[in-house]
């Protein structure tokens, strides 16, 4: 692993634990010697969680109420 570009390309597989041992070791060596990449990895890791919080939707109350009414009507014995 010689460049940041190569390191970042492998990040997703690395975090999924799917890198072959040799590549994993090379990536970790790069991270051990490259502060910008360490910051990058830390923020890359936080990204999905922040996005989940931001993008999770709530069903508006009027629609939730119509859903309940609809299901009551269709599930009545």
């Amino acid at each position: 692993m010689h460049t940041c570009k190569e390191a970042i390309e492998l990040l997703a597989a690395y975090l999924d634990g799917e890198l072959p041992p040799a590549q994993k070791q090379a990536l970790e060596e790069h991270l051990g010697a490259c502060a910008p990449c360490v910051d990058f990895v830390a923020t890359y890791r936080q990204t999905p969680g922040l996005c989940k919080k931001a993008l999770e939707a709530k069903m508006p109350k009027d629609l939730a109420d119509s859903l309940s009414a609809f299901l009551r009507k269709h599930t009545a014995a």
Binding site: H2, T3, C4, K5, E6, I8, C34, P36, C37, D39, F40, A42, T43, Q46, L50, K53, A54
Partner: peptide, 25 residues
């Protein structure tokens, strides 16, 4: 991301304020 010709990162990361678990965004 932005890299130079040698493939090194050329952007610096901002300070990300920690968002506590369960805290709203």
């Amino acid at each position: 991301p932005k890299f130079n010709a040698r493939g090194s990162l050329i952007e610096s990361v901002a300070d990300w304020a920690p968002t506590a678990e369960g805290a709203s965004l």
